[in-house]
């Protein structure tokens, strides 16, 4: 026998189920008076630094139908590429930008809308800069463990071409699934769970 490493396995995941709104966005589903406001609904204020953008997203199932009961959280750096987190050791992020947003799908259209800012570039492990990106986490009924992906920006061709994460994707035809086209200040990021255009999801 040897000494025990003392590790405990992670608690196994279970689906968020159809009523995830009750727990995470109760005001959205009509449970008023418990919390003042749902968390993560407002990402920017007047003092937030950076270019205002809107991200519109949908999560689409294997039949082409947008999920109307999904919930998405996003996590991103501020305009200078700093995260508002105690684990960020490179400097202090913009105090007027938490970098985190939470949005339930519209119950009729399945659309998610985030009003945020365009993040700055963040270094990869080896110091090379990654292209600006927003991390997405998707949960819903029928999704047994939350899905992680990243949205990159369609107007950042040069940065995207040298991004170490995008470069790691072996099948280059799949890279465009992570890149949101820009129209005005709106980026559209459709996430496909299955099919020819299945979005790249990360085990990260």
């Amino acid at each position: 026998m040897v000494q025990d490493l003392g590790r405990i396995k992670e608690t196994p995941s279970q689906t968020a189920g159809p009523y995830v709104h009750i727990g995470l966005t109760p005001n959205f589903c009509g449970i008023g008076g418990v919390y003042d406001a749902d968390l993560g609904t407002s990402m920017v204020n007047d003092k937030t630094r950076g270019e205002r953008i809107t991200v519109k997203s949908r999560v689409i199932d294997g039949s082409g139908t947008p999920l109307k009961d999904a919930l998405v959280e996003i996590w991103q750096a501020d305009a200078d590429g700093l995260y508002n987190s105690p684990s960020e050791m490179r400097g202090s992020a913009d105090p007027n930008f938490a970098g985190w947003g939470r949005c339930p799908a519209d119950m009729d259209t399945g659309e998610f809308v985030f009003h945020t800012i365009k993040p700055g570039r963040v270094p990869f492990r080896d110091g090379r800069l990654m292209a600006p990106h927003i991390t997405f986490w998707i949960v819903a009924r029928g999704i047994n463990i939350g899905l992680h992906t990243r949205m990159y920006f369609g107007d950042e061709e040069k940065a995207n071409a040298e991004d170490p994460v995008l470069q790691r994707i072996e099948h280059k035809v799949r890279v465009p699934t992570l890149i949101a086209p820009r129209e005005g200040n709106v980026y559209t990021f459709d996430i496909h769970l299955q099919g020819d255009r299945e979005t790249v999801f990360f085990d990260i």
Partner: peptide, 13 residues
């Protein structure tokens, strides 16, 4: 889960 499960491998990183 049938129509909501990704079918391709996750990219490990």
């Amino acid at each position: 889960s049938v129509l909501r499960s990704p079918q391709k491998s996750l990219i490990s990183m």
